[in-house]
Simulated assay, not measured.
Amino acid sequence: MSKPAPQRRADARRNHARILAVAEAEVAEHGAGASLEQIARVAGVGSATVRRHFPTRRALLESVARARIDALCARAAELERGEDARAALLEWLGDVVAYCASARGFAAAIAVDGAEPESVYENACSASLERAGAPLLRRAEAAGAVDGGVTMSELITLIVGIALATEHHAAPEAQAERLFQVAVAGLSPAG
């Protein structure tokens, strides 16, 4: 039987919460490249304290994105009960696009960065989304609504690309939605 993880001291919990709150604001304003030093300064802690709580930029971005990831995962579970498998998958993917486009830094939090699969710092956000969306994709494949062989990882990568490409657009949400619709429809005319 493993022993429980040690409780953090009260000041460490406060520092963690303060760093995370400041990081959310900084990432929203400056995107995934928000300065860790600025986050430390505004939070009133040293850079080493930020790095102790968040050893990598990815760890910080994932923590900032966690609430959004959890909401998207819950949404996928809700949509699994829908009758139209294609519509459910596309609605969920559209929700992911909207979240990515509306929150600077979110796309970077789910982007694959080449971390080793066994790494402690593997992309937990992307992995959570892939697990949540996989049943929707399998259902759509089984219904013949999506070509077999498409992976959820590929779909998340496509969304990340759309969000990153539109991040600095005058209307990022609208442009991301438009590009997503182009990707869904393909380039061939209906017929």
Rank of each mutant, 00 (worst) to 15 (best):
S2Q: 08
K3S: 11
K3V: 03
P4N: 06
P6W: 01
R8M: 12
A10Y: 09
A10F: 10
A10L: 08
D11L: 05
R14A: 15
N15I: 02
A17Y: 00
R18K: 14
L20F: 02
A21T: 13
A21Y: 02
E24P: 00
A25N: 02
A28G: 07
E29V: 10
H30T: 06
A32W: 09
A32G: 15
A34G: 03
S35M: 11
L36S: 01
E37V: 12
Q38F: 01
R41C: 00
R51A: 04
F54N: 03
P55H: 09
R58H: 03
R58Q: 15
A59R: 14
L61P: 04
S63M: 05
V64K: 02
R66Q: 14
I69N: 03
I69K: 06
L72S: 04
L72V: 11
A74W: 01
R75Q: 12
R75V: 01
R75M: 09
A77N: 01
A77E: 12
A77R: 11
L79C: 00
L79Y: 00
E80D: 08
R81D: 01
A85L: 02
A87Q: 08
L90Y: 06
L90P: 00
L90E: 11
E91A: 12
W92L: 01
L93Q: 10
L93D: 00
D95W: 00
V97R: 06
A98D: 14
A98Y: 06
A98P: 00
Y99H: 14
C100Q: 12
S102V: 02
A103E: 10
R104V: 02
G105E: 09
F106Y: 12
F106A: 14
A107I: 05
A108N: 05
A111H: 04
G114D: 10
G114W: 09
P117V: 12
E118V: 11
E122V: 10
N123Q: 03
N123G: 06
N123S: 09
C125P: 01
L129E: 08
L129N: 05
R131S: 11
R131H: 03
P135E: 11
L137H: 10
L137A: 11
R138M: 15
R138D: 13
R139M: 10
A140S: 14
A145D: 14
G148L: 15
G148Q: 13
G148F: 11
G149C: 11
T151K: 07
S153W: 02
S153Q: 12
E154I: 00
L155M: 15
V160D: 03
G161F: 11
G161M: 07
G161P: 07
I162P: 06
A163N: 09
A165S: 15
T166I: 07
T166H: 07
E167I: 10
E167W: 01
E167K: 10
A174V: 13
Q175T: 13
Q175P: 01
A176K: 05
E177M: 10
R178K: 14
R178W: 13
L179M: 14
Q181V: 10
V182P: 00
A183V: 06
V184E: 02
G186H: 08
P189L: 13
A190G: 05
A190E: 13
G191A: 13
G191C: 06
G191T: 09
G191M: 08
